[in-house]
Design a protein around this nucleic acid. Structure first.
Length: 108
DNA sequence: AAGGTGACCGGCC
DNA sequence: TGGCCGGCCACCT
């Protein structure tokens, strides 16, 4: 594996258990670069090439499926989340805090 | 090498 | 919660 920033993000996302979701900022924080939340989103963009990355479990801080547009479909991301027991209404996760899962901090 | 870009976040109203 | 603005950092052309 390479030391690419993407790999770092993927590693975290892959640790997200089923039925749980996290935010870009949380991942960025776990990476130690809380200010690069945008980079996390960018990494997810490249995650299209990686199958082991459940990007559908990653949403923005509001719990909105900000990246559903990139999922190739319209409600695919939502379906995946609902399939894991997460309720999604109007592109927004219900009880977001409840399903929120915080990744472990790197180097700790 | 420089500039543009982005699936964001936090603060303020 | 919603809208607007600034910052921030790695990737791409």
């Amino acid at each position: 594996m390479e030391d690419n920033f993407f790999e770092r993000v993927y590693r975290i996302v892959r640790q997200i258990p089923e039925g749980k979701v996290t935010s870009y900022g949380a991942i960025a924080k776990a990476l130690g670069t809380a200010r690069s939340a945008r980079m996390v989103g960018w990494a997810m963009n490249a995650s299209h090439n990686t199958e082991d990355v459940p990007a559908h479990r990653v949403v923005n801080r509001k719990g909105l499926l900000s990246g559903k547009h990139h999922f190739g479909g319209t409600n695919l991301m939502q379906q995946l989340l609902e399939n894991e027991g997460i309720k999604v209404v109007d592109n927004q996760i219900v009880d977001f805090e409840k399903h929120f899962w915080q990744p472990e901090i790197s180097g700790q």
